[in-house]
Structures are given as C-alpha cells and as structure tokens.
Computed example of a mutant assay.
Amino acid sequence: MTSYRFRVWLHPNPPLEFEPETEVWRDIEVDGSHTLTDVHEAIFDAFERRDTHAYEFLLRDEHGISIRSYAHPEMYSGEQSWPPMDDEQIDRFLEHAIPDDVSEETRDTFRDLRKNPPEERNAAETTIDELDLIESQSLFYEFDFGDGWEHHIEVEEIREGSLDGEPVIVDKQGDAPPQYPEK
C-alpha cells in the first residue's frame, strides 16, 4: 500500500474578503485507498467549513495542464471533463494565457486535450492510487462553485506503507477564513 502527503494551498478570494498576508495551507496525509471524496472531506475539515457544497478536482500534468476532471458524485455525468474548444478558441487562449517559453510539445498537449476532452470521473469512485501520481504533481480543487473557494494541491511526498484510518491533518499555516464573510 502507498500513502501520500498533500500540501493544500487556499487561494485568495477577494469577493469573500479573503486576502491573507501570508499563504494559508494545510498538509494532509492520505492513504492510496482513500477516494477523492475522502480528500474533499479532509480539506473541508482542515479549513473549518460547515456548509456542504459541490466540488471538483482537476488532475494536472507536470506542466500544470489539466488532464481530467473528477466531479462531485451528485454532479457526475460521465460526459467530457470540459466542453471542447475549437481552433480559434484554443489559439486565443494560447496567445493570452500561456507564457511564450512553453514548449511546442506542451502546447500540442493542451491543444489536443481541449479539442478532445477526456471523460470525467466520479470523485467518490476514484482512489488516490488510481491517479498514478508522482511527487510535485498537482491538482486543482474548487469547493462551492458560487463562492469559488479555489485550492492548489501539490503532492509533497509518496511513501510505502498504509495510513490507518481517515486522512490526517499533519501541519498547517495561517488561519482558515470563515466560509462566509460576516455581514
């Protein structure tokens, strides 16, 4: 069995008045048999949330390109991970959002994934081991699509051995903001 240590950074969220002076993150250890839904629940607890909402994970390759989505079980449709883009949309995106120093191979990968999106997967049915992760690979996680709590998840460590029980918060930096700003 394999266990993983993830660092989960919470992105600033100016509409909800969350713009911290220092980075806010949590380190969470999970077992390879845990599902992405288990990871979602650990993040939910780690950032002291109380009101459940939909969520999605995007698996990224070594260049940061999203290669597949993993949907909240109630949102899972089995359709494509994202709507396909035509050549004009892809070219516009590459021109405005991708740095000039990105290799042509990476651009081609992005182009292919946007033209032919992979099938989305169900987060509740996908184990961490099934993601075939490598250290320093990343995922994107968004919770509550209305308020848009965005997170960057980096694979900090992969090691042999099983984690008994539920995912565990092992380190943290910064205070968790309230899920909803005080009015």
Rank of each mutant, 00 (worst) to 15 (best):
D108M: 06
A46I: 05
L139I: 02
F47P: 03
H96A: 14
E119R: 15
G64D: 06
V168A: 11
E135D: 13
L131F: 03
D129W: 00
H152Y: 11
E105K: 13
I169W: 03
Q173R: 09
P99Y: 06
V39H: 00
A42S: 13
D61Y: 00
R60W: 03
F6L: 10
F140Q: 13
Q173A: 08
E156P: 07
E105L: 12
E79N: 12
P12R: 09
L113Y: 02
L131H: 07
V102H: 02
L133H: 02
D87N: 10
D147F: 09
L131I: 07
F143S: 03
R114P: 02
V24Q: 06
P117I: 12
V155A: 01
G148L: 12
R92V: 01
E29V: 08
I65P: 04
F6M: 07
E119V: 11
V102C: 10
R5E: 10
E29K: 11
S33C: 07
S69A: 15
E17C: 12
D175C: 00
F57G: 05
S138Q: 12
G78R: 01
M1N: 04
M1K: 07
D86R: 05
Q173Y: 00
V8T: 06
E79D: 14
E41W: 00
H151G: 03
N122L: 15
Q89Y: 00
V170M: 05
F140V: 05
P84E: 09
L10I: 00
I98E: 12
E21M: 05
P177N: 14
T37K: 05
V155F: 02
I158Y: 06
I158F: 07
E88T: 13
H151K: 12
V39C: 01
N122M: 15
G78W: 00
E56A: 06
E130R: 12
M75F: 11
P181T: 02
P20R: 03
P73Q: 04
H72Q: 13
D87H: 09
H152K: 14
E135T: 12
R107W: 01
A123V: 08
A54M: 15
E21N: 06
I90A: 09
T22G: 09
E95V: 05
E19K: 11
R5S: 09
L16Q: 12
E154F: 14
K172Y: 06
N13D: 06
Y180E: 14
P12Q: 14
D164S: 13
G78V: 12
T109F: 01
F44K: 11
E157A: 10
H34I: 08
S33T: 10
H53M: 11
T109D: 13
T127M: 04
P99N: 08
E88L: 10
I158G: 03
V102M: 14
V24T: 00
T35F: 07
Y55D: 08
D101M: 14
E79I: 03
D147M: 08
A123D: 02
T127P: 02
G165T: 10
P20A: 05
E21A: 07
L133C: 03
